[in-house]
């Protein structure tokens, strides 16, 4: 049984969001990089838990990115996983990311592919679904719990206004969010082991550009808060009713 976990590199959640080159590029100077939280906390940890329950499972991690991704890939390997693959290209969009992963995954034949529900930088939320279409596999998005029973998976997923539990035969692509697992911190043994785990670099396949991030801008600053005394709650309701018109 082989699991592939897709790992993305994103700015730390407290990173200052600013743009350079005439607002066409994210300003990367001074930014700390992390594993995209959904990939790390839920997708990767759940894969590791499955392997702990069944040591015959192999876990591969895959990232599409340049050598700047190596530190976060090592960090992911410190949490768990047997080896990592980096497709050596800076992806342009969700499509090109999914395309490169699909090209690799097709040759390997995974039983299970995990992604996070979205990345916290470009918020595409599309790699898992696109990948499943490229590989013609079933897709279960926005999972909040994942159980494996032999050749089928039992997955709870978010639906509008609630949750639904489904059963699906492997192979399947699943996007993970809160509920699937609990975040972990790598231990010393894991960090040591990660240094010697294989990190294979593969060259990208040629693909077309479908979308381009052509410019960025920041939201306008808020006008400032209107404070109302705690003794005069009616006044707040009046303002919300008459001024803001939201009640």
């Amino acid at each position: 049984m082989k699991i592939l976990v897709c790992i993305s590199k994103t700015p730390d959640t407290t990173a200052k969001i600013a743009f350079t080159d005439n607002n066409t590029k994210f300003a990367e100077t001074g930014v700390q990089w992390i594993i995209n939280p959904y990939d790390e906390w839920y997708a990767l940890v759940r894969a590791i838990e499955l392997k702990e329950a069944d040591p015959s499972i192999t876990i591969h991690l895959i990232n599409v990115g340049n050598a700047d991704s190596d530190p976060i890939i090592r960090k992911a390997l410190a949490l768990g996983g047997d080896e990592a693959i980096r497709v050596n290209t800076q992806p342009a969009d969700s499509y090109s990311t999914a395309f490169q992963i699909a090209e690799f995954a097709r040759q390997e034949g995974y039983d299970l592919i995990f992604t996070g529900k979205e990345t916290i930088d470009y918020n595409g939320g599309a790699v898992g679904a696109m990948l499943s279409e490229m590989l013609d596999l079933p897709y279960v998005g926005l999972a909040t719990s994942f159980l494996l029973n032999g050749k089928t998976a039992t997955i709870t997923r978010e639906i509008e206004g609630g949750e639904e539990t489904v059963e699906v035969p492997l192979p399947v692509v699943v996007s993970c969010q809160k509920g699937v697992a609990e975040a972990r911190i790598p231990n010393m043994r894991g960090i040591m082991a990660a240094r010697t785990k294989p990190l294979k670099v593969v060259e990208p396949k040629q693909t077309e550009t479908q979308t381009v991030f052509s410019g960025f801008n920041l939201p306008p600053a808020k006008a400032g808060v209107k404070l109302v005394s705690s003794e005069n709650v009616e006044e707040l309701v009046r303002l919300l009713h008459e001024e803001a018109r939201v009640i």
């Binding site: 969700s94 918020n123 599309a126 679904a129 696109m130 639906i159 979308t211």
Partner: peptide, 21 residues
């Protein structure tokens, strides 16, 4: 929730560029 699963797949199938959100 439904659109997040469907739109990217339909985009791939139609060879269409996709913008989410």
């Amino acid at each position: 929730s439904a659109g997040k699963s469907l739109a990217p797949k339909v985009a791939v199938r139609m060879n269409a560029g996709y913008v989410s959100g």
